[in-house]
């Protein structure tokens, strides 16, 4: 369906603008595309898997006598 320039303007004006700031959810840091990529990158996460397991084991070993 072809939307004319006039009808596009009407639809656009009817869309409610959402102002996101001044809400709690607006302020925390949000991950970038790159961060999201590295979070599920297989090789990088395999390295993290080993590193985090090492950190956990260190806590386990040191934790109790």
């Amino acid at each position: 369906m072809r939307v004319s320039h006039l009808s596009f303007n009407i639809i656009y004006k009817q869309m409610k603008t959402v102002v996101r700031n001044y809400k709690d959810e607006y302020y925390p840091p949000i991950p970038t595309k790159s961060t999201k990529f590295w979070r599920v990158s297989f090789i990088y996460q395999f390295y993290k898997f080993l590193k985090l397991n090492f950190k956990i084991m260190r806590i386990v070993v040191k934790g109790h006598s």
Binding site: Q45, K48, F49, N53, R58
Partner: peptide
């Protein structure tokens, strides 16, 4: 140095 907070696929595997 012993406190960690990380999110990623590795966490799911662990």
């Amino acid at each position: 140095n012993a406190t960690v907070g990380e999110i990623g696929l590795a966490g799911h595997w662990i």
